[in-house]
Write a protein that binds this DNA or RNA. Structure first.
Length: 560
RNA sequence: CUGUCCGUAGCACAGCCGGAUAAUGCAUCAGACUCCGACUCUGAAGAUCGAGGGUUCGAAUCCCUCCGGGCAGGCCA
């Protein structure tokens, strides 16, 4: 348990004991209801505060401030890291840390080192995080860049919080998208040799399709022109698709994303799992036929509308392989939790997927979907329209050519998933300190530099005693340690909320407090004891920053 | 029309399972290096938390209505 959590737990016990004592003495009559201990926003209101006296006013039939007085008179704070209490406002009881708290925090960080911030909250539960899953029919776009940074970082956050995480990419290598891909390739190929081939409105118009057709022609010439359309399409897809999938893997790897598994939709067709979904639902009586199509009674399982599983032409709709895929994750492979990172445009589809899983006897609560709002690209203060059809969208690759990986991975995690992201290209390309990642990295480099300078002057880093650490007492030092103390709780909260942006905000605050400390306090000093204590503080800050940057797979430079 | 997410300072955004003076960055203005790296720091100014009602000791936070915006709702994915 962390110093911070332990302190709060012991305080809670002390408050309960105090109330118990007061009841025994007859000072209070009634039953103590639940209360909370929290960290006040305004720290002049103490380091911790409780609403115990206010929530119990009704039960004890006394004014909150009177109850607060009784609690404070009876409380025994021995061994709690709390040195004094104060009654304030409508009846809050405020508590102030003893200096032993701060020394405990620094000792904890030193002991735990690169595992400081980790938690066993997840108890080793197996979690599958699926993210990006871009269509292999073309290049990835900026939305995938956000999804990638979010999904990969969320996976890391969950690992730090004690979950057993698998990262997975779902390849849509079957179905309509592939048919469209084949059509596009075929037409581009034929255009190289014959007139009279026009690209349909709903085909892929990107340059990548033209390039594939050309590359094929360069290698195999016009050998396909006189073949049947079926053969031609298959040959072109067999040629282009593997290249695209390799490209996805390569580009994502460059983005520092490495998956545990690439799952192919086609495997679900081959294994019969897609067909099995329809069969199972039909066996259980959850389907009906209408207008030649097979419908699923989704409304009976909480969805807003029934939907089609098998079209009147006999082909399954896109949902069926998706259902089979999620059934596979939870029922076949037995993950305790499946987390999907989806674009917000898929939000209406989540209840349907869950309805189908429920109908199949799977606990739909095991599926959590993180909806990610669109990225709005802004250049020169104007929104860039992203048109997929024209193929003019900014791709992940061009984005990463323009901005550093560190910046992209951090930047995309500065905002919670379910809020629109305004991505200012000028700003990102500028690589200025406006991008918070530089601010955080600078703090890290600065600490390394201080230590290097001290070392070159012959200063040896010593083990600080608790007495040494008590020398840390300025506001800047105390606030900084206070912030460092909360890292583990932040990790847990970020995991609980599926929100890595909590951590990037947190580490930015750590960097801010460090820079403030740096400006206010000199580490180098004639006073050896104080200097050693400040070195210990610097080391603790460096550990926290390094751990966060490692978590996000961002470099922690020793100089910049 | 129905569902869903959002609306907080000039801009971009925290805070949202109710708590004390609504936090931060950019931009603006005024300051700080003969001193461990100024990619930094200090200070000022800037918000009737979209509007109205309700719930209660207390609402940016919970409930209802309305206004404004994004996205869905098709045998497309």
């Amino acid at each position: 348990m962390t110093t911070s959590a332990l302190t709060q737990q012991r305080l809670k016990e002390a408050i309960l004991a105090s109330v118990g004592a007061a009841i025994n003495k007859g000072e209070l009559n009634g039953e103590m209801p639940g209360f909370t201990i929290e960290i006040p926003a305004d720290r002049t209101h103490g380091d911790l505060a409780t609403n115990a006296a206010m929530v119990s006013a009704r039960a004890f039939r006394l004014a909150p401030r009177k109850i607060a007085e009784i609690i404070c008179e009876n409380i025994d704070l021995t061994g709690t890291n709390i040195s004094r209490t104060e009654i304030a406002g409508p009846g809050f009881i405020n508590f102030f840390y003893d200096k032993s708290f701060y020394a405990d925090v620094l000792n904890e960080i030193k002991t735990k080192g690169d595992s400081y911030g980790r938690s066993d909250m997840g108890q080793g539960k197996r979690v599958l995080v699926e993210f990006v899953s871009a269509n292999p029919t073309g290049p990835m776009h900026v939305g995938n860049a956000r999804g990638g940074a979010l999904g990969d970082s969320l996976s890391s956050v969950l690992e730090w919080a004690g979950f057993d995480v698998s990262r997975e990419f779902y390849i849509n290598d079957a179905g309509n998208q592939i048919e469209k891909f084949a059509t596009s390739l075929e037409i581009r190929y034929m255009q190289l040799f014959c007139d009279g081939y026009e690209m349909p409105e709903d085909s892929y118009h990107g340059q990548d399709i033209i390039d594939h057709a050309k590359n094929f022609a360069d290698k195999y010439g016009d050998s396909l022109v006189n073949e049947s359309s079926d053969k031609r399409r298959k040959a072109l897809v067999d040629f282009a698709l593997p290249q695209n999938i390799e490209g996805l893997e390569r580009d994502l790897k460059k983005y520092r994303i490495v998956y545990d598994n690439w799952f192919r939709e086609s495997s679900l067709h081959k294994s019969g799992e897609v067909k099995k979904v329809v069969d199972l639902l039909t066996e259980k009586g959850h389907t009906y036929e209408s207008e030649g199509a097979v419908w699923f009674r989704a409304t009976e399982f909480g969805a807003d509308k029934d939907f089609v599983l098998v079209r009147s032409n006999g082909l399954p709709t896109y949902v069926v392989p998706d259902i089979a895929y999620h059934y596979n994750k939870l029922a076949v492979r037995g993950f305790d939790k499946a987390i999907d990172i989806f674009g917000a445009d898929h939000h209406g589809y989540v209840p349907r997927l869950k309805a189908a899983l429920t109908a199949l006897g799977v606990d739909a609560d095991k599926l959590d979907v993180v909806l990610m709002q669109m990225v709005r690209l802004v250049r020169n203060g104007e929104t860039i329209k992203v048109s997929k059809r024209s193929g003019k969208a900014i791709t992940l690759v061009t984005l990463l050519d323009e901005i550093p990986i560190d910046a992209a991975r951090f930047f995309f995690n500065t905002r919670e998933a379910n809020s629109h992201f305004e991505f200012d290209l000028d700003l990102a390309i500028e690589q200025s300190s406006k991008n918070p990642v530089y601010y955080v990295q600078y703090a890290h480099a600065r600490i390394c530099n201080i230590l290097k300078n001290l070392e070159s002057e012959g200063v040896e880093i010593q083990n600080c005693t608790t007495q040494d650490l008590y020398r840390l007492s300025t506001d800047e030092e105390i606030e900084l340690i206070d912030k460092l103390a909360l890292f583990t709780e932040e990790t847990e909260a970020a995991a609980r909320d599926y929100d890595p942006s909590r951590i990037t905000r947190y580490v930015t605050e750590v960097a801010t407090l460090f820079h403030k400390f740096y400006n206010a306090c000199r580490v180098k000093s004639e006073d050896t004891q104080l200097m050693q204590a400040r070195i210990a503080l610097c080391l603790a800050v460096r550990t926290v920053i390094k751990n966060v940057l490692d978590m996000f797979k961002i470099t922690a430079p020793e100089q910049m």
